[in-house]
């Protein structure tokens, strides 16, 4: 009997040591991994719209809570939904390129884990928003079915208006360039016609006339004259004039239109 026990001790000891070391290793490994995940920089910065929404939900728990109407909460939820959709789009767009980068070794494994974590978080948040939208639906409107549709449309619209604003700025450049050019041509025309006395004597005059008339109906007459004159004047005054009529003195936003259209084409 005693002999029997003694023969059993080594294998049991062996098992205990093996299992014990494995357990310690796995616990340490997991702890490290969790730590790494926790210390990982989030993919997206903290979302203000989410904080606002959750704060509104939790306000009743605070001392002397203000009364928040449902409409405000719905608005906050819609804004949160737009933020989430925006992020989901970013995630979807960057997944394939990031994967290629990972395969080529240009991006480390930790970036990829970080990305996957962000993807999971966004998925969870989408679910959360959908559930809340369901809770905030009315009988007539099953909001959960179209809140993301609305949110996505709002993003597209925001981008469209932004593009239009940018384009408007460019247009202003064009208008300024053109009015400067016509003004120049006009003053040269006046000079070549021998009205220098007038120009120099009352040097303010032509400028006032031009600036005040450019946007109105009278302005276009002067524009037309300018163009005609330029064509004629370019032969006698050749070197300087033809150069100036091309592009040198005033910077021309010449290649801008093509670029903008291509960008829009690509987005579509």
């Amino acid at each position: 009997m005693g002999l029997n026990l003694a023969t059993f001790i080594p294998p049991i000891l062996y098992l205990v040591v093996i299992v014990g070391s494995m357990a310690t290793f796995s616990s340490i490994y997991r702890k490290r991994k969790a730590q790494a995940a926790a210390s990982m920089e989030p993919w997206f910065p903290p979302s203000l719209s989410r904080d606002v929404y959750l704060t509104l939900l939790h306000l009743p728990d605070t001392p002397n809570p203000p009364k928040i109407p449902d409409s405000v909460i719905r608005t906050a939820l819609l804004r949160r939904a737009t933020d989430v959709i925006q992020k989901a789009i970013t995630i979807r767009q960057s997944k394939a390129p990031l994967q290629t980068l990972l395969q080529r070794g240009s991006v480390g494994d930790d970036t990829w884990t970080q990305f996957l974590q962000a993807e999971q978080e966004i998925d969870a948040e989408i679910k959360e928003v959908a559930e809340d939208a369901m809770a905030l639906s009315t009988q007539n409107a099953q909001w959960a079915q179209f809140i993301f549709q609305t949110a996505a449309e709002m993003i597209t619209n925001d981008r469209l208006r932004q593009k239009l604003e940018e384009q408007k700025l460019k247009s202003q450049e064009w208008s300024e360039w053109w009015s400067k050019k016509t003004e120049k041509v006009r003053s040269e025309f006046l000079a070549s016609e021998g009205v220098e006395d007038l120009v120099q004597g009352t040097s303010v005059n032509p400028a006032i006339v031009l600036t005040s008339t450019v946007p109105t109906k009278a302005g276009h007459v002067s524009d037309e004259d300018g163009v005609l004159v330029e064509a004629e004047a370019s032969s006698p005054l050749t070197p300087k004039e033809s150069k100036s009529s091309k592009s040198t003195p005033v910077s021309t936003p010449s290649s801008t239109p093509a670029g903008s259209v291509r960008r829009k084409k690509g987005r579509k």
């Binding site: 449902d70 409409s71 719905r74 608005t75 819609l78 009315t138 007539n140 409107a141 609305t150």
Partner: peptide, 11 residues
């Protein structure tokens, strides 16, 4: 959004 019933914008 207040113009809508329950402040839910339509699809």
């Amino acid at each position: 959004l207040l113009q809508f019933d329950a402040a839910i914008p339509p699809p």
